[in-house]
Amino acid sequence: MVERKKKTSPVKINYLIDFIIFVAFLAAMDPHMTGIAIHEWLSIAFGAAIITHLLLHWRWLAATTRRIFSKVARQARVNYILNTLFFIDMTLVIFTGIMISEEALPLLGIRLEPGFIWRTLHSLSSDAALFLLGLHVALHWKWIVSTTKRYVLKPMISIRLGKVRQEVSA
């Protein structure tokens, strides 16, 4: 008998990765909470997370890029412009963070001349990133709510109901 492997839904994977990225973003945004070393390493790892996020949404990205100057829904156009700004901003945050690194790069034996401009740019771009993340989440709010209901709330309710039924039957 051939056993079929149960395939995990791509929506589920997207949801999980996006949730991890969101939590990592909040943690990385606050070096006073994590400490400088974790802040720096987490932010460098964040680059890989952004690449993964973009790869998972590549179809939408490629299709919208092709149609952006012709026929495309307004919502998609706004989303595309916002996402482009967010990508530029996050690249700036990570790059300027590397330029003023105090822990991560010196540990690898790399020492850069820290500059006021890099520090200012890092501060400005990370403030902008928080604002852009807010807009990014807001524009995908319907998807977040429906996916949370489907993959988090419903399973939790069904588990709870199952336990109650077991207790009643016992």
Binding site: H32, I36, L135, V137, A138
Partner: peptide, 27 residues
């Protein structure tokens, strides 16, 4: 190590979460 002590430690993270929440609500 750059970490903040006392009750201020979570304040900034909660503030950031609050800012995102307000933006989401407005939009």
């Amino acid at each position: 190590d750059g970490r903040e002590g006392g009750s201020f430690r979570w304040f900034s993270t909660l503030k950031n979460l609050g800012i995102i929440g307000v933006i989401v609500l407005i939009v």
